[in-house]
Nucleic acid binder design. Structure first.
Lengths: 139, 139
DNA sequence: TTTCTTGCAAAGGCTTTGCACAGTA
DNA sequence: TACTGTGCAAAGCCTTTGCAAGAAA
């Protein structure tokens, strides 16, 4: 089963309709690489309206099958998300993106909560750097 | 010496001019609380043009005296920054913001770098939750 | 049939740019 | 004086909204 098909099942299971535009967008997103801008999707699916792209991205975020990534310059990108909670590591040169998760990070958050008395509900963590390949190429 | 004055010295030291609008904006920002939107500054300094507010905020970010904060909804806010590297903890109810730093977090980043071979150049870390006062008020 | 979706186009919010004038060093 | 900084207004970019028409269940 492809990623797109899996997501279609999720939509159906949650009571959303499997429409042509939605299928098309899922197909397109699967082929766009590890992350993409809303505009990339718009361009790759010329038959689907711009508004529908944004509405669909928002829907998929709510369903946790797409996650938002804040790039280093503040721009927004999207990514078909793995199931588990994770964070992003981006190469500032080639834009390669890797997911990672870290129990230690969860511990850090727990410690912050303890120290401040806050109850933590959400967080954002993005790391920017240079991947091994880009280091080798330029150093 | 007030915060605004300290920043004025930083500007001077770095070769930027101490202009009326810049002084006014620093004054205003000092009074805006722990974080503010660009628009808050615009409103609070009606004599200064909108463009200048944005240009000044960008300048101050480059000088590391103002830092950008991504709010939970993705909106951008700004904050007069303490000198040390730090992160933000925001209350989603009352918008109170606290800075915190964490050696453990730095360790997490180092570990991610080690594991992936990336060299880390920057990161973003924002934590959202509810502060003790809001917990007491609503629970 | 009923309700959810879509497309289009327009509006919106926020930020940046162009340019001539003004102010600083 | 020379050059940086400013205001104004307009342009830009990205995203959302309104509404009538169309498709899924």
């Amino acid at each position: 089963m492809t990623t797109a098909e899996a997501i279609e099942q999720t939509l159906a299971r949650r009571g959303y309709r499997l429409t042509g535009p939605r299928r098309a967008l899922l197909e397109v997103m699967s082929g766009l690489g590890d992350h993409f801008a809303a505009d990339d999707v718009v361009n790759a699916a010329p038959a689907v309206g711009r508004a529908t792209v944004f509405r669909t991205l928002k829907l998929l975020q709510d369903l946790d099958v797409v996650c938002q990534v804040v790039l280093e310059d503040g721009a927004t990108a999207y990514r078909l998300a793995p199931d588990e909670h994770h964070h992003h590591l981006l190469c500032v040169e080639c834009s390669e993106m890797r997911d990672f998760s870290s129990d230690d990070l969860e511990a850090v958050i727990a410690e912050v909560a303890r120290r401040t008395g806050f109850t933590v509900e959400a967080h954002r963590f993005e790391v920017y750097g240079r991947c091994p390949a880009c280091q080798a190429r330029t150093s």
